[in-house]
Design a binder for these strands. Sequence first.
DNA 1: CTGAAAGCGCTTACAG
DNA 2: CTGAAAGCGCTTACAG
Lengths: 339, 339
Amino acid sequence: MKITIRDIAEAAGVSTTTVSQILNNKGSRFSEETRAKVMETVKKFNYQPDFFAQNMITKKSKTIGMIVPDVTDFFFSKLIEGVEAYLNSFGYMMLLCNTSHDKLLEEKYFEELLRRSVEGIIIATPNMLNDTITKHPKVQGKKVPLLLMDLGKNPRNEGKLLVEEYQGVYDATKYLIDNGHRTIAFLREVGDYYQLSERITGFLNCLEDYGIEEDDRLIESSPLDIQGGYQGANRLLEKNIPFTALVCTNDQMAIGAYQAITEAGLKVPDDISVIGFDGLEITRYMSPALTTVYQPIYDVGYTAGEFIIGAIEKPASKIPNKTFPTKLLIRDSVKQLTD
Amino acid sequence: MKITIRDIAEAAGVSTTTVSQILNNKGSRFSEETRAKVMETVKKFNYQPDFFAQNMITKKSKTIGMIVPDVTDFFFSKLIEGVEAYLNSFGYMMLLCNTSHDKLLEEKYFEELLRRSVEGIIIATPNMLNDTITKHPKVQGKKVPLLLMDLGKNPRNEGKLLVEEYQGVYDATKYLIDNGHRTIAFLREVGDYYQLSERITGFLNCLEDYGIEEDDRLIESSPLDIQGGYQGANRLLEKNIPFTALVCTNDQMAIGAYQAITEAGLKVPDDISVIGFDGLEITRYMSPALTTVYQPIYDVGYTAGEFIIGAIEKPASKIPNKTFPTKLLIRDSVKQLTD
DNA sequence: CTGAAAGCGCTTACAG
DNA sequence: CTGAAAGCGCTTACAG
């Protein structure tokens, strides 16, 4: 039924060795004549080497595994897009695993990926990983490079992909101060997921650098989604402590905050200025357009693809570290205060 | 280096046949004693059968391929989430391919997936597929089931997963009419991508059924994203033909339309009522909250996973068809007109 | 320049 | 109840 290398060899009147060598552009030179004949019958039979037979020998699955907490989250889908774009151009494919924030699934997928002989694994995770993952013999032995997109949470000395979140929020806060704001609220993440501590630190340090006293009551923790932003902003508003600006840990929260502010009968930016973080495309179309800190998620993913392939092809070399810049996108959600 | 079935056989003092049979729970019963001994040494050596060797024989890669036009699009990421959730529970994994709307890549990925011996393929596509895909011997011979998520665009007589888009938009339009609206604009998709003709048809038929004359000038075509909605709505507004309501082909367009309406100095819903389509989570937090037609994308994906696995395990049976209901989510973007 | 043979690590008739 | 042997479809020394 299935056409094998033997069929091709017979049809071309050569040995399977010859077919294999020619197909893999290997060493010994064959006469142009037999080469042509082989290629021709390969084409004629539309022959493709069996993937599994090939892999059993070469151990090159040309596959990497990627584990994310939530494919539908804009951040991760953008990351996946970047990784995939790079892999694609090198003939690699991605086995995608979605954990739905289940830490147990994370480990289960990791094991399964290894069993399937992927050549590398990328894990995007907010978690401190178990030793079963980070100290796995195949990882330790550099058999299967592991790249973590965890904001540097798990200690390691190579393959750190970071974003200048601190500087981004610092700049945003500075921008607010430059515009005359002195009472600035902050919506930070809640404890059980990604720890975005760089962001709140950038905020606090900037306040300090410019002699503005921190007011704990103006800092609220909430989930990193629209609803979280909505509720967090409401809690802030209900305190009746006046503030003129609000910095949100991500854009989704800012979207929710807009809603809360509007419902409270206030306006952005006339009553409260808002700044987000991420630079989602959607923020351009909010009304007013959101001023936000852009981070290059696609590029981070693309680079992750680059680094993992690099690590696969040169197992001896260290995986590089890289830090990506952020950029304050100035739009219409911050009011210039004159006082 | 690598521990093989032979190592286990030797260590347990049995044959490789025995080890293989026991591990795969096959036929002949072995004494409880040897079974225990085998299991024990398997555990001791932490042995796992080589994936490729196993697959070369069984031809069961326990892998399906999924091709989408854009992972970052909410629709597709939600679909992926649904498919993955089902696969996961059956030990299957997904090779994800992102075409970035490149039709050539679509075919390339399809071939590559086949070469990698996936057991089934799901393609989400707005395209009329080439014969190289739909008439591929492996597909025709039911060797590799192919499931299309194409809104029924490619003719076939099994595996049609559809959503009641027509009814959804019809209901939405009816809702508008019930609220006193008579001049209703419509923002439809532009020609070169998904053809969402069910939606515009639902709209037009509803108008007709309730004796409202269609006005071509009130129908604009635009890309199915935020920007498209923004520009389309602007074009509508610039015509200076008064209308009291706007139906958008999807939620993203509605988001853009909100922006255009606000910028024109008008208010939703006081001046113009707006209805979207999709039911994205974000629409709950728009201000005012968007009234929209919900479609169960995750469920569609989950069912796609179910059907593809079903087709793999029972190649003889037809892949079922299924149509999913939509539901009008009534919120705050439609005004009751009293006249 | 080319081929016979061994071997990758499994599973599966087949025989006992 | 268990094992020897063939075979899956390749690639890779090795020999000539």
